[in-house]
Design a binder for these strands. Structure first.
Lengths: 344, 344
DNA sequence: CCATCGTTGGCAACCGATTGACAAACGGGG
DNA sequence: CCCCGTTTGTCAATCGGTTGCCAACGATGG
């Protein structure tokens, strides 16, 4: 009741959105604008009394600093961007979530820009957000390497599950999970594994194939690749015939979507999973545990991947990285219903 | 060979990211910076010859305008934000996609900020992106009304599936889909429907309940609400017992997650869906078509909702809205396996 | 040949902060 | 009482664009 002043003030001061500036505060507190700036951001630079007076004035005016104006002289926006091809992809959004939490810990805001379309739109999107942010997390397959490298000249860039030049690449170590998977399949009696490959030039698909190959050879299990395939349910359905024709008793798909498509096609053809054929995927996507049969899959700690990506950027930007217990960026097998003992 | 000057120039001019400015261009083209600005943004304001010279210089320096610097005097960033509680939610990300495409058509960039945590973090996130953008799309349930209204004083705001004050609310019309659903259930012989309600104060859950109530009464079917429930699979499982105890032969859940949880609990209890009980949901989320039994659900054109949201913002911001054929923001029923004729 | 007019480009102020350099104020020691 | 070293606050330049206002210019018409 006592100070009705607040409401009218906020209305009159600003020209466009009623935003108070440090000048308004300075006038109200009877100091110089630069003093306001220091009081608000440089602890100890101004006396406690003045600072209190300024903070009070700021609160009274409902002051929100304008990050644009701050960014101009400092070159820092305290914002990082994640440019992703497809937010629907569980791998992507879990990584983004990890990144978001981590960014918040550093006082940074994470913004996400998605561009499902062509690589060229993706490039435009990346260029567009670049000037706004202090660093960029790239989780995209379509953007050409050369463009990424040019982007990296302007801002710190870290990639997820992809290598380009010698940029930082955050990728879970697939070997442990794949070892477990092959061991699991071997213990069920499988002697022949087919790998349903991912997209043509996918870096991560190549890594999975390599690890699978190595783990299978080690145990004397025969292994071969079928592909490339797009990482979709539809492509999984289409590849069923080739997979079946291969004679392998276990199919390891590049990701869960492919695996799900495969299982659906099998069911439509009257082939039983896991009785006739075992199927496993990667990523442990939403739904993998409640489809029927539920899906055996190799999962990674994607939240941790997002966190690492942010920490890497913080290092590049020049922010002190918060020490924390070293979590492993590894993979583990989730055994579910889609893999079983060979029947034949 | 003739001008080796370029490489050293880009290196020396910028302090941090070697970014060329309009001043660099001005020097190279032999004009005033303001002329550069006009040449680049004010068609016809400078002579064709000068403009060509300037554009050439800009290209030569690989110039990217700094949107931050531009935003300061103009107050426009050509960016809008979507603040969402949970990107995983299919309703949310489909809306976001629609919004993204629409924004691109207007030359705007859409950034997404997610905050899965408490309402207070959500509020902080919203405040944080607000100064960066020209408008905000809000798809969140947790943010308190009062905070939204304060936000709306600073920037144009449009809401998705929620009413607050008299802000614009983009919400699909649930009536058509629900009419179809009730008609469908009636034709299968169901005479009693239970509605598994959503979160306590959810605006959209209330709308669904109202429409369901109306449609059921119209056909003389008995109908009642069970709830509130959180919109999760876990909550769906928990509510199975109450749903079964109610004696209703058909359960309509507030959303697909609840419906899925319900079905899983039923299976665990040895109750068959759809033989013993029919279940339907809302949203047609990812996976609804490949779970077993696949889920009957009411879907909305969420891409269109996102588009509308953007158009509404464009109107507020003062951008001419592109005319386009009026698509309907309606809902339709997807009939799948989880609803069937009554057995008893 | 001069007055007038429309076009084109330059000058300088401004958006809202940050920050280096410096001056005023202050307290303490000799 | 004066000198000196620290705080504490002020001045002014700066980040990279935008834009109102004005001047120079060439063309045109009387």
């Amino acid at each position: 009741m006592s100070d009705v002043s607040e409401a009218p003030k906020s209305a009159k001061s600003g020209r466009k959105s009623g935003a108070a500036t440090i000048y308004d505060i300075a006038r109200l507190a009877g100091v110089n604008p630069s003093t306001v700036s220091r009081a608000l951001n440089k602890p100890g630079r101004v006396s406690a009394a003045t600072e209190a007076r300024i903070r009070k004035a700021a609160a009274e005016l409902n002051f929100h600093e304008n990050p644009l104006a701050r960014a101009l002289p400092t070159g820092r926006t305290n914002t990082i961007a994640a440019v992703v091809a497809d937010m629907t992809n569980p791998v992507v959004f879990n990584t983004v979530r990890g990144a978001e939490n981590a960014a918040a810990r550093y006082g940074f805001t994470l913004i996400v820009a998605e561009s499902q379309e062509s690589g060229s739109i993706e490039a435009a999107t990346a260029d567009r957000v670049a000037p706004f942010v202090d660093g960029i997390i790239l989780a995209t397959t379509r953007l050409p390497d050369e463009h990424i490298l040019r982007l990296a000249e302007r801002k710190p860039v870290v990639m997820i599950n992809r290598a380009a030049g010698n940029l930082v690449n955050i990728a879970p170590d697939v070997a442990p999970g794949i070892d477990q998977l092959v061991e699991h399949l071997a213990s069920l009696g499988h002697r022949s594994i087919a790998y349903l490959g991912g997209p043509d030039r996918s870096w991560i698909s190549a890594r999975r194939w390599e690890a699978l190959f190595k783990a299978a050879r080690l145990r004397g299990i025969s292994v071969f690749e079928i592909g490339p395939n797009s990482p979709t349910i539809a492509a999984g359905k289409l590849s069923f015939e080739r997979a079946q024709a291969s004679g392998a008793s276990a199919i390891v798909a590049y990701n869960d979507l492919l695996a799900l498509g495969l299982i659906r096609a099998a069911r439509e053809q009257g082939v039983s999973v896991p009785d006739d054929i075992s199927v496993a995927g990667f990523d442990d996507i939403f739904g993998a545990d409640f489809v029927s049969p539920s899906l055996t899959t190799v999962r990674a700690d994607l939240l941790e991947a997002g966190t690492r990506a942010v920490e890497s950027l913080m290092g590049d930007i020049g922010v002190d990285v918060i020490a924390r217990p070293e979590a492993s960026l590894s993979t583990t097998l989730m055994v579910r219903e889609s893999t079983a003992h060979m029947r034949r």
